[in-house]
Amino acid sequence: MRAPAAAGPHAGIPAAPVQLYQVSRHYGAGETQVHALADVSVTFPAGSWTAVMGPSGSGKSTLLHCAAGLDRVTAGRVLLAGQDITHATDAELTRLRRRAVGFVFQNLNLIGSLTAEQNVALPLRLAGARPSRRDVQTALADVGLADRGRHRPRELSGGQQQRVAIARAMVTRPSVLFADEPTGALDTGSARTVLRLLRRMVDAGGQTVVMVTHDPVAAASADAVVFLSDGRIADRLLRPSAAQVAERLTRLEG
């Protein structure tokens, strides 16, 4: 099953580059088995930003990891960037992620011994490409760090480190960006900067962003919010306010 391809900068990528069909993910067996996801079907359209929310243990990160091919589903199907990855090999997943997927996590995974420029260039090197210095500098300039390329992570603030992580994710021009609590450890000003960057990736770059967050303000920056509860989709909101997100989340947590 393949969705129609999108036009524009990511031609060849389907109009819904992330699709989950009746996905379940179980851990353990017998009486101790945990049903992290249960029969979840959801589509993330091209050029859209979706926030995924829910109470602790609702399956948010599991959904993100299954959608990105970082975790295997127990049942159902997952399509990513036009490919069915349900039974893909590790090598196939690695090639696909390097070609079409970017990641930004709260745990930034920056390499402390490398400069910001070297951290940003790393995905290109891992993909076997020779990084263009101009591409790397442009990615850093896009996140407001044109003058920090020679700095190592310890010489940067938390917000600046997060922006380096976003530049690293952007440099390969992925069609899909997965973000897990990208503003969770940031102050309000740095969080706003990161959210503006994600918005620009969607509006100017036509990229798809899927973001797990616990923050109603961050979620309200997205085009849509999907709420999980007990491993199932409990609700959806389109273009909600932060107050609407907070009210719906409180109701689920109650």
Rank of each mutant, 00 (worst) to 15 (best):
A127T: 07
Y27Q: 13
I111R: 03
T183N: 08
P240G: 01
A15C: 13
A29G: 04
R168K: 09
V52W: 02
R133Y: 02
A3Q: 08
G30C: 08
H87M: 02
A246T: 04
V194Y: 05
L238W: 00
G112D: 11
T172Q: 08
L96M: 08
P123C: 12
R192H: 14
V171E: 04
V52S: 00
A121E: 12
D215M: 07
L70A: 11
V217P: 10
D39H: 14
R248Y: 03
G254P: 00
A204D: 15
R95D: 10
R248E: 06
R248W: 03
V176K: 05
G158M: 03
R125S: 04
L96E: 04
S132E: 05
P17W: 05
E181M: 06
H35Y: 09
I13S: 08
V40Y: 14
S157L: 10
Q22W: 00
V52F: 09
L20D: 01
G28R: 14
I85W: 11
S221G: 06
L140N: 06
R251N: 00
L126P: 07
A220C: 02
R134A: 15
N119Q: 03
R251Y: 08
G76Y: 09
D90W: 03
T89K: 04
T115M: 06
K60Q: 05
A179F: 00
F103R: 11
A3C: 04
D223F: 11
S190I: 04
L145W: 05
L96Q: 06
L96K: 09
G184Q: 06
S229C: 11
P153I: 01
V120Y: 12
T43R: 07
D84P: 13
T188K: 14
L37G: 12
D39K: 10
A129N: 12
G30L: 03
A185E: 08
E31K: 10
A185D: 13
G205Q: 11
A121H: 10
T32S: 13
D203A: 14
A91V: 07
S241C: 02
V171A: 08
P123A: 11
A16I: 10
S56G: 13
T89E: 02
D223E: 12
R196C: 04
L79S: 06
A67L: 02
L145S: 04
Q83P: 03
F227P: 07
L63C: 11
R154V: 11
D84M: 08
F178M: 13
T250I: 03
G144S: 10
R99C: 13
L238Y: 00
V120G: 07
L64W: 12
A75S: 15
M211N: 01
